[in-house]
Amino acid sequence: MPIPTRRSRTARRGPAFRLREIAFGLGLVVIVVCGVGLTFKAALGEGDNLPAAVLATVALGVVAAAVVRGGRRRRRGPGPAAVAGVDAVEAARGRAEVQYAEVQYTEAQPVETEPAEPAPAEAASVDYAAMDPDTFERSIAELCERDGCVEVQVVGGAGDLGADVIATTPDGRCVVIQCKRYGPANKVGSQDVQRFGGTCYAVHGAQVAAVVTTGEFTEPAAEYADQCGILCVDHQALTAWADGTGPAPWDHVPAV
């Protein structure tokens, strides 16, 4: 902020300031004249009062000089220290404005967040073909329990009469499953399906009958199963059932 000069400040004060200066000067003249008069009066009167009159005159002169000097100082305007103080205030104000602008800019910037960690890949499908026959039967029973079946039993073994897993579906039907853990080179033939078809309904009272294998079915086996109402679940259908991407065997047969 620019500091006004003496000339510009005086010009702004106008006639009122000049009248105050004239009155101030007349007051000084009156003080000096009074002092001189008192001095001569004391000199013409008693000589003992002369030193006192001289001292009074000198004191009046000192007072007048001090008043004149003070008036001059007031008219000179602010000194270098005042100007330096104003400059310091302006500089501090400028720094504060810059800091405020930086803070506003920082707050306006989008906050960077750490990228989310990628979701772990889904677990690989269970390799049912690598299981032994007993483990495979228990795994099929666990799938039945997972999908809401109750009273799940693993009955495979000697004298099982073709049934390996028996359970009750969520809607109350009896499901009978025969498990065939075969390798890629082996297929479930029609004789396997026929033996199962002769006992699943008559002996076990199946309302849903299914043959589940880790391999595939021959064409005659699939035709016989279709005629008897037996579901053929090959390795692809088993994988879909286990992964949850395909239906459970009993979902293929509508409830009566």
Rank of each mutant, 00 (worst) to 15 (best):
P4G: 08
R7P: 03
R7D: 14
R7F: 06
R7L: 12
A11I: 14
R13S: 10
A16D: 13
F17K: 07
R18I: 15
R20P: 00
I22C: 00
A23F: 00
A23G: 13
F24R: 04
L26E: 00
G27R: 00
G27E: 01
V30R: 13
V30P: 07
V32Y: 10
C34V: 14
F40W: 13
E46Q: 06
L50Q: 06
L50F: 02
P51K: 00
P51D: 04
V54T: 09
L55M: 07
T57E: 12
A59E: 08
A59T: 13
V63H: 07
A65M: 00
G70V: 13
R73I: 13
R73G: 13
V83M: 12
A84Y: 10
V86R: 14
A88I: 08
A91F: 03
A92M: 07
R93L: 11
G94P: 06
Y100D: 05
Y100E: 14
Y100P: 00
E102Y: 04
E102L: 11
V103Q: 12
T106P: 01
E107K: 12
E107Y: 04
E107C: 01
A108K: 00
Q109G: 02
P110G: 00
P115H: 06
P118V: 09
A119T: 15
A123K: 05
A124L: 14
D127M: 04
Y128W: 15
A129D: 10
A130K: 11
D132L: 05
P133D: 13
E137F: 04
S139P: 07
S139W: 05
S139H: 15
I140Y: 02
A141K: 03
L143M: 03
C144S: 11
E145H: 08
R146Q: 13
R146N: 11
E151N: 14
E151L: 12
E151W: 11
Q153A: 11
G156D: 06
G156C: 11
L161E: 00
D164P: 12
D164T: 14
D164W: 05
V165S: 01
A167H: 01
D171Y: 10
G172D: 12
C174H: 05
I177F: 09
Q178N: 07
K180W: 08
K180Q: 13
K180G: 04
A185T: 11
N186W: 13
V188E: 01
V193M: 02
Q194E: 07
G198E: 09
H204N: 06
H204Y: 05
G205M: 09
A206I: 08
V208H: 00
V208N: 00
A210P: 11
V211K: 02
V211L: 15
E216S: 15
E219V: 15
P220Y: 12
A221L: 05
A222W: 09
A222Y: 08
Y224L: 15
Y224W: 15
Y224N: 02
Q227M: 10
Q227K: 06
C228P: 03
L231R: 06
V233L: 06
Q236T: 15
Q236K: 15
A237T: 06
L238D: 10
T239N: 03
W241C: 04
A242P: 01
A242I: 00
G244K: 08
T245E: 02
P249F: 06
P249D: 07
W250E: 02
W250S: 05
P254I: 10
A255V: 14
